[in-house]
Amino acid sequence: MAEEKKVYSRTKGIIEGAVSGFCPGCMHSTVHKIIGEAAEELGALDKLVRVEGVGCCGLGQFYVTCDETIAAHGRAGAVATGIKRSSPDSLVYTYQGDGDLAAIGLAETLSAANRGENFTVIFVNNGIYGMTGGQMAPTTLVGMKATTAPKGRDPQEHGYPMHMSEIINQLTAPYYIERVSCDTPQHVIKARNAIKKAFKYQMEGRGYSIVEIVTSCPTNWGLDTLKSLDFLREKMFEEYPLGVFRDKGAEEK
């Protein structure tokens, strides 16, 4: 009988023995895991710098093993600009939710993308403000209820969901834009590969990458973990289709 081999280990990118502070079924923890795995596979954990947004992503500060700073709400794109320009050898990523990246940080997000800053944006889009208790986000679906839109998002009053990957795809500078999810093992692997690709591009000095991860929020959607997966696939993927929007690296090959 062949010798037993370990084929899946917990990444060193998250603190040994730590349990995340995220809710059951929340994919923030999945994303933290695959960021660690991607950096570890590239041998770059000791270069990794996390610029953390505000919101549920703030729970990551007790979970990750890399250097980390906390940006003011929405300012991760600006803080990462300052860090990467001052320390070009660092592998810098921002970790932001939809409220952080698409509402309060819209100017910083688009301006960093437009400058083609050489860092990676990890954008977790679950269509709602999680940490503060389920308020409406720029990405909240039409008709979806939120504590600040108790009758559901009404386009007449609130406008329509914002598609950040598509908007950033209107800019010339960004190098790589992909939207992924983490609802199946296959999608998790795809998401990890996307993050790894974005990191690799950054290490090669190619410029701005954003990986948007469409996820669920069982707690604030008011659904159990498995029903939230159904909603994610039926409603969120319809509004936010998965796929590669731009990959200049693949085009150049």
């Binding site: 084929v7 899946y8 995340s20 929340c26 994919m27 923890s29 999945t30």
Partner: peptide
């Protein structure tokens, strides 16, 4: 069968796999 699908999907990194 040690395919590690459970470990891939697990948000909490709670599963490790040997094969």
């Amino acid at each position: 069968i040690g395919c590690a699908m459970c470990a891939q999907i697990c948000p909490e990194s709670a599963i490790e796999v040997w094969r």
